[in-house]
Nucleic acid binder design. Structure first.
Lengths: 214, 214
DNA sequence: ACCTGAACACCGTTCAAGT
DNA sequence: ACCTGAACACCGTTCAAGT
């Protein structure tokens, strides 16, 4: 922990939306989403809580701003790649961006974003689908299916969704009429996120590839 | 008179975990998750805020309790159905349970549950997979893939995830280097949740069926 | 244009006291 | 065993006042 608490009046250009968002993301990374408050963030910035409102529209807008920072970290796919490579690159880029800030990821995965920066990845997905011959309605269909998978999978990786890991003990299960659960218990106890992700992605990209033919 | 000792003119029966959870769910249904507070809930129940703590372990446990109520509403699948029918019935039951309380659904979709009631649906999914010949590790694989899809899809239906509906106006898109987005704009503007759900589910159940053969 | 501090209307939870 | 109210340490945000 670096000692950036008690701050003298000025330092490297005082407040700005960018500096606020960067500090907010650092706060989420360190202490989690529940720890975010306008007052605590202001304290970290050495500033009165109300000063934040000159650059950010309130707490909800602040959280949206953090989500946009995460989304902006998704790299653009190589422009010469085919449909499958493009989709795969974007999916992996999305995943890497979320896992790089796993405590902030739920902001992207659970909030409705209406900003322009949210549209850049959408463009990057739709463009190759249209180029592959998908009519626009089915391209949107494909986009949404892949996105639902990504959101659901990442929600689990990011610890916000159930894995059934350290749950109840095995002994209770057998006596409780849960034979299948107890038979699979050792595999419920661990989760290879990487493998789960690759498996699901392959299934979906195969299905998209088959649709592209028709 | 009514069996219980004289008590201030409150509604029938005093406090109980069950009554608290029912009222909490009603509060979420009416005002949304953000409106839930221990104090407001107590007010609705005509009770001191601190009385709730005799039946519930705090706000987080209260929210977990609401999630369990939702999960308990998933009907058991018909016992004589085959793999595909069983999985389909459970998926539809899960969806119906979430859509029946869409503002509370994020509690199920985003929180890690470690309770026994969360395991009943898991048992119901694993049992037919094992019966169909899946080894336990691959059955868990299948469970998790379907669950990720359900969570991602329902998160969108429940309004917690992006649909790209009422976003920026079309005119801005063309000038912003988003040709694919603007070409698909009319389809991004609407979302047939039912059709999206059925499409994705079919893709996954087909893949599971193919795996069952091998 | 930006920053500040007091003030308002809330929170979740601890604790000591009541029945 | 259950319920209560005061108290503590917080919130997000409005507003009037400062520079």
């Amino acid at each position: 922990m670096t000692g950036r608490r008690g701050r003298p009046p000025r330092e490297a250009g005082s407040l700005s939306r960018e500096r606020i968002l960067r500090e907010a993301l650092a706060l989420v990374d360190e202490e989690g989403l529940d720890a975010v408050s306008m007052r605590k963030l202001a304290r970290r910035l050495g500033v009165d809580p109300m000063s934040l409102y000159n650059h950010v529209d309130g707490k909800d807008a602040l959280l949206d701003g953090i989500a946009e920072v995460l989304l902006a970290a998704i790299p653009a796919p190589p422009p010469d790649a085919d449909l499958r490579e493009t989709m795969s690159a974007l999916a992996h880029g999305f995943r890497a961006a979320m896992l790089g800030h796993s405590r902030a990821a739920p902001l992207v995965l659970t909030r409705r974003l209406a900003s322009m920066t949210a549209l850049a990845p959408v463009e990057a997905v739709l463009a190759p689908l249209l180029a592959a011959g998908f009519p626009p309605d089915r391209a949107v269909h494909g986009l949404r299916t892949v996105l639902a998978f990504l959101i659901g999978t990442l929600m689990r990786e990011v610890d916000a969704a159930p894995t059934f890991s350290g749950g109840p003990r095995l002994a209770e299960l057998e006596g409780a009429g849960l034979p299948a659960v107890s038979a699979a218990a050792p595999f419920l106890a661990v989760c290879d996120h990487e493998a789960e992700f690759e498996f699901g992605l392959r299934v979906l990209l195969d299905a998209l590839g088959a649709m592209a033919g028709a």
